[in-house]
């Protein structure tokens, strides 16, 4: 299965050049980053792309590291940050482990070597791994077009199955992740049929603790439609509570109840709730464990 004819291919090296090309070619043009989801679409001829703009050489998309932005510490991930980097970079592993948790679940070594965070987020597969931690970490996404730039919070970024706020003439440039507050821990887990597969369900949680008490949390569930869902009731339940296994079990029960799950080829809705209960508990436990380690 082979792509349909592509009439032109450009590989701009600057963001300016890229957004000009986008403007110029309109809906015929599509951006390619790692291509791990886009090339299959080309092969399936499910996209009417006649011009491919390869963004891999654009320097502005390659930022990676912590910095201070208006006195706030953030981790900046350029859209071209590879899954491999998220899975293995010491900074991510030590300080933002939920990201490396999630990145390690993505596909396989080859996909992680080539695939990018920007590509994954813009592709917006509801069963993908990175949307959940990006939401959990309350990230901000910077999107640029010829008209200028805008920032969007992760909560506003996903519009539906394979749909985001990124317009045809725009490009996602980077993702800013606030450095965790003291006493914060976050974790992610994915249930899948075989290694590297898409999620049956996935759970990501960030919990901020003072001693044994939960100050606040952000909890999201992936592998559900149309995009990852926030567990607001579970978050509310946990807030201010002294955390015990029993409380976490109750939280997991609430989580399993509140998230709308569906039946598909991978699992029934009923069973997804069982998995949510099981892994909701485990992910929360792990996040809290990390939070406590952080307190020490």
């Amino acid at each position: 299965m082979y792509p349909a004819t592509i009439t032109d291919y450009m590989a701009p090296t600057t963001l300016d050049e890229c957004i000009q090309l986008l403007e110029q070619h309109g809906s015929q043009a599509k951006l390619i980053a790692g291509g791990q989801s886009f090339v299959p679409l080309l092969k399936l001829r499910m996209t009417d792309t006649s011009i491919v703009i390869d963004i891999n050489r654009i320097i502005e998309l390659q930022e990676f590291g912590e910095k201070n932005i208006s006195q706030k510490r953030i981790l900046r991930l350029g859209a071209l940050t590879k899954h491999k980097t998220l899975a293995t970079h010491p900074l991510v592993v030590s300080k933002y482990p939920i990201l490396s948790d999630a990145a390690k679940f993505i596909g396989d070594v080859q996909v992680r070597n080539r695939g990018t965070i920007g590509g994954s987020l813009v592709h917006a597969d509801p069963a993908a791994d990175l949307p959940v931690p990006i939401l959990v970490l309350d990230s901000t996404l910077r999107i640029v077009s010829r008209e200028g730039e805008r920032t969007v919070s992760a909560d506003d970024f996903f519009l539906g199955i394979m749909m985001t706020v990124v317009e045809q003439n725009e490009i996602l440039v980077n993702i800013d992740i606030p450095a965790p507050l003291p006493g914060t821990g976050a974790a992610y887990y994915k249930c899948c049929a075989v290694y590297g597969d898409f999620a049956i369900i996935s759970v990501g949680a960030s919990v901020t603790m003072t001693d044994d008490s939960c100050d606040s949390s952000r909890i999201y569930v992936g592998g559900v439609y149309p995009s990852p869902q926030r567990a607001v009731q579970t978050e509310a339940f946990l807030q201010g509570k002294a955390i015990t296994d029993d409380i976490l079990q109750q939280a997991a029960d609430i989580l399993a109840d509140e998230i709308p799950v569906e039946t598909d080829m991978r699992a029934t809705a009923e069973y997804r709730r069982i998995l949510l209960k099981e892994h909701g508990f485990k992910v929360l436990s792990k996040a809290i464990k990390r939070a406590k380690e952080d307190n020490i």
Binding site: G35, V39, L42, V111
Partner: peptide, 21 residues
């Protein structure tokens, strides 16, 4: 993965790339 090659030092799948890339 049968098409895996090493590209600029990393193992990647050559069926998930265009040659021009």
């Amino acid at each position: 993965g049968a098409c895996t090659i090493v590209l600029n030092g990393d193992a990647v799948k050559s069926c998930l790339m265009l040659a021009v890339q």
